[in-house]
């Protein structure tokens, strides 16, 4: 992982804007930002953002690579799309935030143990395994992501909710033995692997 980072640093030297434009989803839009500040007031978890989207765009142009890619700011995005519909320059801000988070994750620079990073990974792993997200396994994995002891505590704290959902027929305890899955799991896995390969090729990312 950090090899990928070394390679990226060598390739782009001091041109972080170019790196973002070539490698981050919708990164070519960053140039279009006119720093009006509208997006900065749009995020529901705004006070918890270390840097607002507006500031992140400014930092990218100022070449603050390390500061941007190691920040947990982008991981505060709830995908509410407030910013997208308000931006006077029509920047796909949500996608850029997702793209930056993903890129920092792939380079191994995203903060370790960042909770949204963790659940995003668990979610994707669950998806790739069966083609569908198995909600019970996903919830269990969530509870146990901080280790066994904490997992029991988390599960106990949410026990009422879990039992309530089981009783209401909205969480199926049988899922643990299998449950929701696509028939063509194999095909889906090969398809995803191929898509990843194409994307790596296009963006010059070596795994």
């Amino acid at each position: 992982m950090s090899d990928m980072n070394t390679q990226a640093v060598a390739r782009y030297r001091n041109n972080f804007l170019k790196e973002v434009e070539e490698r981050v989803e919708d990164g070519h839009w960053v140039r279009m930002c006119m720093q009006c500040g509208v997006c900065a007031g749009s995020c529901p978890l705004g006070p918890h953002w270390e840097h607002s989207p507006q500031k992140i765009f400014m930092m990218i142009r100022a070449g603050k690579r390390e500061e941007v890619l190691t920040s947990d700011a982008m991981w505060m995005c709830t995908s509410c799309y407030n910013c997208i519909v308000r931006c006077p320059r029509k920047l796909p801000i949500t996608h850029i935030m997702h793209g930056l988070a993903h890129y920092s994750h792939r380079l191994g620079l995203a903060p370790k143990g960042q909770p949204t990073r963790e659940i995003a990974k668990l979610f994707w792993d669950s998806l790739v395994k069966t083609g569908r997200v198995n909600e019970l396994k996903f919830s269990l994995a969530m509870y146990f992501k901080d280790g066994f002891g904490q997992g029991i505590k988390n599960a106990m704290a949410m026990q009422g909710v879990g039992l309530g959902l089981v009783k209401a027929g909205r969480l199926n305890p049988m899922e643990i033995l299998g449950g929701h899955a696509c028939k063509d799991k194999g095909g889906i896995q090969k398809m995803i692997a191929k898509a990843q390969e194409i994307e790596n090729r296009k963006k010059g990312l070596t795994a």
Binding site: E25, S79, H98, G99, A101, H102, H105, R106, T116, R117, I119, A120, K121, F123, W124, D125, L127, G131, R132, V133, C182, K183, D184, I188, M191, I192, A195, Q196, I198, E199
Partner: peptide, 26 residues
């Protein structure tokens, strides 16, 4: 028949752009 998960909003962390798009494309 045999539809799959869309990747949801949170899929971006691990799944890149094309891997996410092909989920819906399928």
């Amino acid at each position: 028949p045999d539809w799959n998960c869309c990747g949801a909003s949170i899929g971006y962390g691990e799944g890149g752009e094309l891997p996410r798009l092909v989920l819906s494309a399928r």
